[in-house]
């Protein structure tokens, strides 16, 4: 019995020692995987218009497009000229669109509801732009940056996530319009490829 206990203790010590040598990856919540259901779809968020919404309500008959965005990120500014055209395309295809602002740590530094309202007005936002007040939705989605795209099908299963396209600075010089292709293929019932992409962006400013 004593020997067993000693073996257990040794095993635990060895495991701890082994873990100490593994690379440390500081990860926030895991990112939603392709095929996963949209989380927190019944959580209420407030749009810049004052309207209170849930993701369930925003979703269209063919799906939902969620973009974690903000007011203070140059990458958002770079891609922003594509926000309205993509919204138009998504909505014409029965996909609801919402942008969520998760930057909870800097609400008093450019990311308040007032700031969001001003941005929506100055940039003529033609979509819901709502406050993810404590970044709970961003956390549940495993979003990491702004902008960060999540496209769901009619069953609210994730079918595409990542970047809008492969050229933030110039809509004219885009080689791969990832999100547009994903929307077209989703409504056409075709395979989406690629399903995940990456792009540079600003880290989400998580609540402290």
């Amino acid at each position: 019995m004593k020997l067993h206990r000693l073996v257990y203790v040794l095993l635990i010590l060895l495991s701890v020692g082994f873990l100490a040598f593994l690379p440390v990856e500081d990860k926030l919540a895991d990112r939603l995987e392709i095929g996963s259901k949209a989380p927190l779809t019944d959580v209420e968020v407030t749009d810049v218009s004052g309207e209170v919404l849930t993701l369930e309500e925003v979703a269209g008959e063919n799906g939902l497009l969620v973009n974690f965005s903000c007011n203070t990120c140059p990458w958002v500014e770079a891609w922003e000229d594509r926000y309205n055209p993509i919204t138009k395309m998504a909505e014409e295809n029965g996909i609801g669109v919402i942008m969520l602002n998760p930057n909870a740590a800097i609400r008093n530094d450019g990311e308040s509801m007032d700031d969001m309202q001003a941005r929506a007005k100055s940039s003529n936002y033609d979509f819901y732009y709502a406050l993810d007040e404590q970044a709970k939705l961003a956390e549940a989605f495993g979003a990491t940056r702004t902008p960060d795209i999540f496209l769901f099908n009619s069953n609210m299963e994730l079918v595409y996530t990542g970047a809008i396209d492969d050229n933030a600075k110039s809509a004219e010089e885009v080689d791969q319009p990832y999100l547009k292709n994903a929307i077209q293929n989703l409504v056409a019932g075709k395979e989406i490829d690629p399903k995940t992409t990456k792009a540079l962006g600003c880290t989400i400013k998580w609540p402290k």
Partner: peptide, 26 residues
Amino acid sequence: NDWSGALPFTKVLNKEGKVIASWEQG
């Protein structure tokens, strides 16, 4: 492979080139 693209990003490697840690965020 563990970097989503968010800035800043930091990666620390030992003398043998093994990744000791990496993280997004400041």
